[in-house]
Amino acid sequence: MQSSSENIFELKVKSSTHYLGEIREFIQAAALENNIPEKIIADVILSVDEACTNIIKHAYHSNPQNDFIIKLFFSKNEIKIVLVDYGDSFNLNAIESPNMEIYFKQKRVGGLGLYLIRSLMDEVKYKSIKGEYNELILAKKLN
């Protein structure tokens, strides 16, 4: 789209929650370098943390031998985040946002991450090429 004016950052991570702190620091540093407002940085950090946690737990079943990739694209109007993994895929549209009161009554734990991502990001897209890779694309508008 506007590749000529994009700043791109990339991080390859092992699939362990041990690296979540490192992932947050990577986003923080890249966002500060691009003069992103604090509130937007916080929303992006939480959304990416949630998405990475889902990859680690559900795509890779917490096996730390696997890798996934985080790419950040900063352009004038938005931050785009692309997460690529090579593990099990899921059906994004099949996961509904929970009604919290019912959710509490059912004593469910977990599954809140996607709800937060959908609440905080302006765009959430998922693509899975069977046997090759899964790609989650998040975008946050800057204005």
Partner: peptide
């Protein structure tokens, strides 16, 4: 300083 849904889940796990 920071909390994600995994942290919130802990409160839900024990409240009942």
């Amino acid at each position: 300083k920071y909390i994600s849904s995994a942290g919130l889940g802990v409160f839900m796990a024990f409240i009942e």
